[in-house]
Amino acid sequence: MSLDHAISRFVHDGCHLSIGGFTVNRNPMAAVYEIIRQKKRGIHLYAHSNGQGVDELIGGGCVDRLEIAYAGNGRFAPTCVRFRKAVESGELVVEDYSNFQMSLRFTAGAMGLPFLPVKSGIESDIANQWGFKPAARRSDEKIPDLKLCIIDNPFGRWADTTRLVLVPAIEPDVSIIHAQTADSSGTVRIDGLAFTDIEQAKAARHVIVTCETIVDTRQLRKQPERNQLPFFCVDAVVHLPMGAYPTACYGHYDYDPGYLNDYRNYAQNDEHHRNYLDRYIFKTKDHAAFISLQPLHRLNKIKADPDTGYATGLNRL
């Protein structure tokens, strides 16, 4: 399936969307840019420690509500710039969780459970401050009535635990992940860190997988222990080389410090950011056209070293 078709088919205005990846690593960026290009609006977005993908979707005007644990891009933007602006101006409603809470919420969704218990979050403002107010929650059937719930251990002091936080499942309308390898039916192989991508995918009603390489099913079946997601969990597979760029894709390319530094500078100024969107996203017809705008010397520098899986010696200042 082509990316524009997959996005127009599964990502709708106001939908609940979850994107994989972690900070500046293996975000499904081609899909993010296509969502911006198609001017989707009113999205309810979920991630855990996402960075660039979340920030671009917010900057692209696509997101109304956000549930996350963290929005930062390491040294390129310790707090994501468009995220910060949108929250400080009150344009974006955020509900904060911790990383483990978010990964358990996706796991609960992936298991078809209403919630899972966790030890972290008790007596913090993550438990006490709710991004979505109770009335708003009750009037929206796609948001649970409670942000979370603290209970006494119903098994007494079993497992040496007295109290627990129950965090509600997330069941996104659609999850999008970018993987190194898939076959055309949707079986997925992720190399390196999986983050919470698989749980995010399994929790969703629809799943779009973009990948660096499409291989024959027989190749994936030779080493089934290396595959993480079976084809029957996936709705659309899109072959997209450099599909995580400018974030890293282990074994293929590193994050691009040049792009990410430039992006931070554009994002800090509304007019520059509008010009950025125009030039790189609205005026490019697809991801290949977007990639062709990037200077070749930069793309060459981020090529992964076969020994390490990242660009050894890359200047990351």
């Binding site: 707090t79 994501c80 904060d96 911790s98 030890k119 972290s120 913090s124």
Partner: peptide
């Protein structure tokens, strides 16, 4: 001022 959020910090310190 908005900062990035907990990430794993709450989990670790808990």
């Amino acid at each position: 001022v908005r900062f990035p959020g907990s990430g794993g910090a709450n989990d670790f310190a808990s």
